[in-house]
Write a protein that binds this DNA or RNA. Sequence first.
DNA 1: CAATCGCTTCACT
DNA 2: CTAACGAGTGAAGCGATTG
Length: 354
Amino acid sequence: MAAREGYIIYIDMDSFFASCELLRHPDLKEKPFAVVTKSADKFRGVVQTANYSARKFSIHSGMPIMKALQLYPNLYCIKADHDYYEEISDEISDMLKSYGFEIEMVSIDEAAIDTTGLEESKVVEIAKDMKRKISDGLKLPCTIGIAKGKTFAKMACDSAKPNGFLFIKGDETLDFISYKRVSDIPGVGKKTEEKLANLNMYYIRDLKNANVQALVGLLGEYGSKIYNLSNGIDEEKIVSDWVTLSVGREKNLNEDTNDTSVIMAKLKELSNDTADMIRSTKKLYKSITVKVRYFDFNTKIKTKTLSYYTDSADVLYSEASELIKPLIKDNIMVRRVGVRVSTLMDSSHQQKLF
DNA sequence: CAATCGCTTCACT
DNA sequence: CTAACGAGTGAAGCGATTG
């Protein structure tokens, strides 16, 4: 079990959307507020990011707005402005790229940087420099974790939030993770945690001496991944040229309905948006998926793969409307519809449309 | 038997 | 502190199908 050679610097912005909003609404400082889904109907939205003052009232991302307002009735809600956050994210990534290391933008507000080849003291120095640039230059708070491995670095980062900095030396990795909960492993959510709890495994140290086969039986290949992690082996690679596998849009209807014309109108809107996205990334699609969520949250999808690649919005809409027909039923109200395209290809590859 | 397809599940912000 | 009825996006996984 060869340990990873190099350190990974993992940077995660603190309540990113909320911090971005503070840049242009400084008056909100200290006030509990939340960035919420920009949905037509506020009664159906959820909190996307709560600032730390709001988190004191147990408000967090994913929580229905209505619930958040119960917890703190004066909560100030701002509709998410993704274009704005994207611009700021680009500034951050440009700045980080200028150091010349291999870097992965893991999400709009997270980056992983591979410093393999650099001596230990230098790694910490550079990471501090990055934090200073984000804090002084961009006026945004962030947390940095450093460890031997992308997953471990992210975990270090998570446990140092907010506005933190944590360096885990290579030989301290096992000590660091052993007493953490299984749910502290990125990718282990509610369901996986539950399954592990059924085997009486709650902490990472419980995984360490577990039977690998049992874990694989329970979780598939992911089982062996977390087994390795629990033993200090983190083989996650930094992927700088991340390939998009699918793109789509989905949206709640203003109210539940089974009126075909209303659903088709929404489908057209979503198809156009999706086609716009695919064109803006200079890609072509071959597969089309439609999704319907009914009033009771039951969700069905239908997928069709074409015999050719295209970026046409019209093709998307007409195929999607055929796919969705069998999902619309007289007696079941529809709450939400979605369109997604996959099996993508660069349009520069110049293939023919047949 | 490997690649692709269609669909469900899961995680995150 | 549970559950909360909850938006939007995308990847992973898996069984069935196909060639």
